[in-house]
Design a protein around this nucleic acid. Structure first.
Length: 270
DNA sequence: CGTATTCCCTGCACGC
DNA sequence: TGCGTGCAGGGAATAC
């Protein structure tokens, strides 16, 4: 589900429900997701106020006084704010109850997500080696070009490497490469500086547009209020293998690249 | 150091 | 209808 636009959509949806609220309790229905769920969420968080909700890469941070809840939605995670009396389903693993009477509920069928604790004044190791935020000014073509020198990996894998730039997953990597007219399997180190300028601009444009549409709902992604994302209507290549390119009419091709399907236009992208 | 592979888990579409 | 197979938005761990 969630790449940067979906996580950002989730963050914005949570803000009005969580900001300034006091946590009244937490229910952990299983001990772990990808890793053990931090005990502090049940032991330390209740009684504290949520002072801010931040996003770094695809992680969300709920800032309380003594620390932050650090969570990742993995492939299938979603967060919703519900009335306090909605019974939990099979994959509703964690509830955080609020003084508004509502509940923040984490659902994650595949359990690739995580729910950790970052003590105040520390930076969790998972956040230590991340690249720049793609929508910030320090991410640009120059950065991509410099980071890519000498690298033989496909440019799509390079773009999805979170130590190069964060937040870009399989969907938006495919879309940005199409927009920049770069073939996904080209060696990252052989792409010119000029083309990386176009790629960085494409990444920014695609992500901003996807956020404006509320993200991409392929199966079960939704904002915390249940609304789906509409960027799926704007996808040019992802999920369209075998169909005609919207720009030139050529048949879009698909190839496995790093265990992930990559779709591209053989005529537009070189 | 960089790159490629494997694995975590459930659900779903598909072919037989 | 049932069953097996492969694939799915992520990313850490491992083996070169």
């Amino acid at each position: 589900m969630p790449e940067l636009p979906e996580v950002e959509t989730t963050r914005c949806g949570l803000l009005p429900h969580l900001l300034g609220r006091q946590v009244t309790g937490a229910t952990l229905r299983r001990p772990d997701l990808r890793w053990p769920i931090a005990r502090q969420i049940a032991d330390e968080l209740p009684g504290q106020r949520i002072m801010a909700i931040r996003r770094r890469a695809k992680y969300l941070l709920l800032d309380a006084q003594t620390g932050s809840v650090l969570l990742h939605l993995g492939m299938s995670g979603r967060l919703r704010v519900l009335a306090g009396d909605v019974p939990p389903g099979r994959h509703d693993h964690v509830d955080i109850a609020l003084d508004s009477g509502r509940v923040l509920r984490l659902t994650d069928p595949r359990r690739f997500g995580c729910l950790l604790w970052q003590p105040a004044g520390t930076v969790h190791p998972l956040l230590a080696d991340l690249g720049p935020e793609p929508l910030e000014a320090d991410f640009d073509g120059e950065h991509l070009w410099r980071a890519s020198r000498g690298r033989s990996a496909p440019v799509k894998a390079f773009l999805m490497d979170q130590s190069v730039v964060v937040g870009v997953g399989n969907i938006y990597a495919a879309e940005a490469l199409f927009r920049a007219r770069i073939a996904p399997f080209r060696a990252a180190g052989k792409v010119s500086r000029e083309r990386y300028v176009a790629l960085a601009q494409a990444v920014k444009a695609i992500l901003a547009q996807a956020i404006a549409r509320g993200g991409t709902t392929l199966r079960d992604f939704s904002a915390p209020d249940g609304a789906p994302g509409y960027f799926v209507q704007d996808l040019a290549v992802y999920g369209r293998a075998g169909q005609a390119c919207m720009a030139c009419g050529a048949i879009l091709r698909s190839r496995m690249l790093g265990q992930r399907a990559s779709v591209w236009c053989p005529r537009c992208q070189r």
